[in-house]
């Protein structure tokens, strides 16, 4: 009898327990911290599902960057504790919400238990097609993201541009063009600066490494970009560097670099390989890596911009 099932059950109970805490906690910030812990554990669950690519994304984006975003918001709003969000819900609403939640969760459990056997899968087809458009990529997930379903990936990068603009657009009119508020305190602690100076270069190397191995092993532009973004944010927290002005030309170019290069490569498809978003067999791998490099840049810039928030007019 293996220990592994017990590990899985313990992990599952922990994840659900933290989720319950996130929902049930009285205190706003306690709930946020519960969610951050939950995100960490979720990365472990993904490893157990044989999804290291997703685990890496979850660790970097779902837990890391989202954690900083939520902790910042939770701490700022937590200062003005509950009471201003409106009256707490009545019993009828509680019963309704509980019944609906139970119904949906119960139906989902029932369905998951009767999912068809054998499960349908596109894995063999994806592997077969790897001889064609996804040529030479050992990591099937990268092949799916950049080749078979490249259109989704490109549009998702456009979504990121819109999200950044949406976050910026929340700011005040007179602040437009300025930089977002700094991420760190005015006089950063020595320990923060030291940590940033040590961590950021190592982290950048690791980020690029994870991007680079992504063609053949778990990793890729998303995960590498998210780590680079985190490192940039750490440097900004230590005030080694500042959030850029929202009208900085280089920032905007970097934000659109990924989708723009993707779009151009997609448009060039008919010339290269006879179809939009198709890549010629012989050059598929270099082209895909080329596109991914720009996506890495865009992600590394977009995530910190999303966390840094709208431009801030007040000069320090």
């Amino acid at each position: 009898m293996s220990v592994l099932p017990f590990l899985d059950v313990a992990l599952a109970l922990l994840v659900v327990g933290l989720a319950v805490w996130t929902i049930a906690a009285r205190d706003l910030f306690a709930s946020v911290v519960g969610y951050v812990a939950y995100g960490l554990l979720l990365a472990l669950v993904w490893v157990r599902l044989y999804a290291p690519d997703v685990a890496l994304t979850e660790a970097a984006v779902g837990s890391g960057v989202t954690g900083v975003l939520l902790i910042t918001a939770g701490k700022r709003l937590g200062a003005a504790r509950a009471g201003e969000a409106g009256p707490s819900p009545g019993l009828a609403l509680k019963l309704f919400a509980g019944a609906l939640a139970l119904l949906v969760a119960g139906a989902l459990v029932a369905i998951i238990l009767i999912l068809p056997d054998p499960a349908p899968s596109l894995a063999p087809q994806a592997a077969a097609a790897a001889d064609g458009p996804g040529a030479g990529l050992g990591n099937p997930i990268t092949a799916v993201l950049i080749s078979y379903r490249s259109f989704d990936t490109m549009l998702e990068k456009v979504v990121l541009i819109l999200a950044v603009l949406g976050v910026w657009s929340v700011g005040a009119d007179k602040a437009w063009g300025a930089a977002p508020a700094p991420l760190g305190r005015r006089n950063p602690y020595g320990a923060t600066v030291f940590l940033a100076q040590m961590l950021a270069p190592v982290g950048a190397v690791i980020g690029v490494h994870i991007f680079w191995v992504g063609a053949d092993a778990p990793g890729g532009a998303f995960q590498g970009g998210a780590l680079l973004a985190a490192m940039w944010m750490i440097a900004m927290m230590a005030r080694i560097t500042e959030p850029p002005r929202v009208d900085a030309r280089w920032l905007r170019l970097a934000l659109v670099a990924g989708p723009a290069v993707f779009l151009i490569a997609g448009l060039a498809g008919p010339l290269m390989a006879g179809s939009f978003f198709a890549f010629p067999h012989a050059f598929a791998k270099p082209i895909i890596l080329f596109i991914e490099a720009f996506m890495l840049l865009s992600i590394a810039v977009a995530l910190p911009a999303l966390v840094a928030g709208p431009p801030n007019g007040r000069s320090e």
């Binding site: 596109l122 994806a126 097609a129 458009p133 080749s147 078979y148 490249s150 179809s275 939009f276």
Partner: peptide, 13 residues
């Protein structure tokens, strides 16, 4: 109809 990347569904879009 247009199959993106010359890949027919279900693999392509």
């Amino acid at each position: 109809v247009y199959a993106l990347g010359g890949l027919a569904p279900p693999l392509g879009i």
